[in-house]
Simulated scan of single mutants.
Amino acid sequence: MIARMIGTVCGVGYLRPAPGTWGSLVALPLAWALHILGGFPLLVLAALAVFAGGWWATAQMTAGQSDHDPSEIVADEVVGQWIALAPLSYAAWDRGIEVLVMWPGWIAAFALFRLFDIWNPWLVGQADARVDALGVMLDDVIAGVFAALGVLVLAGFAHGVLRV
């Protein structure tokens, strides 16, 4: 019961279609709330906690099953989305500005994370090819890192080249 609540993020993983997208969407207001409550450090701690809980929950939910990555498990999407948003949270926390001022970055973080999570390029695909609970979590962590790097590149382009 607890594993199912953690793995599906309180049932969000049962939403159709595209439960992974729903998991990523629910991660956005949660990230905002975490940032408001404790800034970047709280977002990082929450991501670590959800990673650990999601890993455990995935192992519990998939024990004895042939499907090692059922679509209803979306804790991995939450962690990956939070990683994609981390550069925005850090910048807002470090500079004392409202995190939602960077709304284009939020859109980019969401879009890039979904792209990398669905596309599974390179290291994302290698992690996804694992047939264990750690692989379920790691592919989204790596997709989140790729998305965070993309957010940084786009921010550098927008502010450095375009000067917006």
Rank of each mutant, 00 (worst) to 15 (best):
R16C: 07
F113R: 03
G13N: 11
G64I: 09
D139F: 06
D117Q: 09
M102D: 10
G135T: 09
G135I: 06
P104G: 10
Q60V: 15
V26Y: 11
A75G: 06
V151E: 08
A18W: 12
W32Q: 06
Q81K: 09
G23M: 03
A57V: 05
E72T: 06
R4K: 14
G156S: 02
L34C: 12
P17D: 06
V50D: 02
V161Q: 08
A52Y: 13
M1H: 10
G160H: 02
V151S: 04
A91R: 11
V145N: 02
G144C: 03
V161M: 08
T21G: 04
A143P: 10
R95I: 00
M61L: 15
W32P: 05
M137H: 09
T62W: 02
V153A: 15
D67L: 12
T21L: 03
L30P: 00
D69N: 13
V50G: 05
F116R: 04
D76F: 01
V78C: 05
V164F: 14
G105T: 01
P87E: 11
M5V: 15
P41W: 09
W103P: 03
S66G: 12
D69C: 00
V124N: 06
W56I: 02
A75S: 15
W93C: 11
D67K: 09
S66M: 10
L48P: 04
W22C: 05
F116E: 10
L88G: 05
V50W: 07
V164S: 07
V44C: 14
W122C: 01
Q81A: 04
L112H: 01
W103A: 12
R114K: 13
I107T: 12
S71V: 07
L138V: 11
L43K: 03
A27T: 11
M1R: 01
V153G: 06
T58A: 14
R95A: 14
W55P: 01
V74P: 00
W22P: 00
W119Q: 13
W55H: 12
T58H: 10
A31E: 01
S24F: 04
L25K: 00
A86I: 10
A75E: 01
L85W: 08
P70Y: 06
A18M: 15
G53C: 06
L28I: 15
I107E: 09
F157R: 00
D117R: 07
V44P: 06
I118V: 13
D139P: 02
G125E: 11
T62P: 07
A52N: 08
R4Q: 13
V124L: 10
D132K: 02
V101D: 08
A111E: 00
L25G: 07
L149T: 04
G80R: 05
G125A: 07
G156P: 07
L48A: 15
Y90S: 00
H68W: 11
I6H: 03
A49F: 14
V145W: 01
R114I: 09
L45N: 01
D132W: 08
G54W: 01
W32H: 08
F146L: 15
A52Q: 07
L149H: 00
L45F: 14
A92H: 08
V78Y: 00
G160T: 03
